[in-house]
Simulated scan of single mutants.
Amino acid sequence: MKIISGDPKYYVAVACIGNKVIGTSMGIICYDLVGNCDPFMLVENVVVSKEYQSRGVGKLLMKTLEEFGQKNQCNYVILVSGGNRESAHNFYESIGYSADQRGFKKRFKKQL
């Protein structure tokens, strides 16, 4: 975590009840190579404990990330969600995200 906490381009939002973590999300500011190199934000690790889903925790986490993105003059936000995660897709659409483009992901084998 030290690497992330020392980098102002990363923002990790954590939702807690007492000492219990019930949700996380992370925003990373990136620069677009096209045009004026304007920034955009990549969102990762949006996770809310099953027992706290549908209680506004995810909305609050995403709102916090969006505020970070706006503060950093981001033009847009992108995220990838697994193809079979229907409830997550419904959640993202309910807060204004659209699936008007396709996303791709490739995993690398870990080097030992």
Rank of each mutant, 00 (worst) to 15 (best):
E66S: 07
L42H: 10
I3C: 03
C30Q: 15
G96M: 04
D32R: 05
I17L: 14
V80R: 04
K110A: 05
R102C: 11
K63W: 00
F108R: 04
I3L: 09
I29D: 13
G6A: 07
S54T: 13
E44Y: 02
V57F: 08
K71Y: 12
F91V: 03
I28N: 06
V80F: 04
L112S: 11
E44D: 11
F108C: 05
G96L: 04
E44N: 09
S5K: 15
Q101W: 08
G35H: 10
I95F: 03
E44R: 01
M41P: 00
L42W: 06
C30F: 03
K2G: 12
V48M: 11
Q73G: 03
I22R: 00
L112H: 09
A88Q: 04
L79H: 02
N19F: 03
Q73V: 06
T64A: 15
S87M: 06
P39D: 05
E86Y: 02
K59F: 06
K71Q: 11
L79G: 04
Y76C: 05
N90E: 08
V34C: 07
L60V: 07
P8L: 03
S81E: 00
M41D: 01
A15R: 02
K2T: 13
Q73K: 14
I28R: 04
F40I: 13
Y11R: 00
I3K: 04
K50P: 06
S5F: 06
I3N: 09
C37Q: 14
S98E: 11
L42T: 12
K110M: 08
N84V: 05
K59Q: 14
E93R: 12
Q73P: 02
F91P: 02
D38F: 10
D100H: 06
Y92I: 03
S98Q: 13
K59R: 15
S49F: 03
A88K: 04
K109I: 14
Y31T: 06
N36K: 10
D32C: 11
I95S: 04
I22V: 13
I3S: 10
M1W: 05
E66K: 05
T24P: 02
S25P: 08
N19A: 08
K63I: 00
E51C: 08
M1Y: 09
V77C: 06
R55F: 06
L42A: 11
V57R: 07
G35D: 08
Q70C: 10
N75Y: 09
S81G: 02
L65Q: 04
D7Q: 06
M62V: 08
L65S: 01
P8K: 09
S49C: 11
K50Q: 14
V14G: 01
S87V: 06
E67Y: 07
L61Y: 05
C74G: 01
R107W: 10
K71G: 02
Y92F: 12
A99C: 09
L61S: 03
V43N: 00
S94A: 07
L112A: 13
N84D: 11
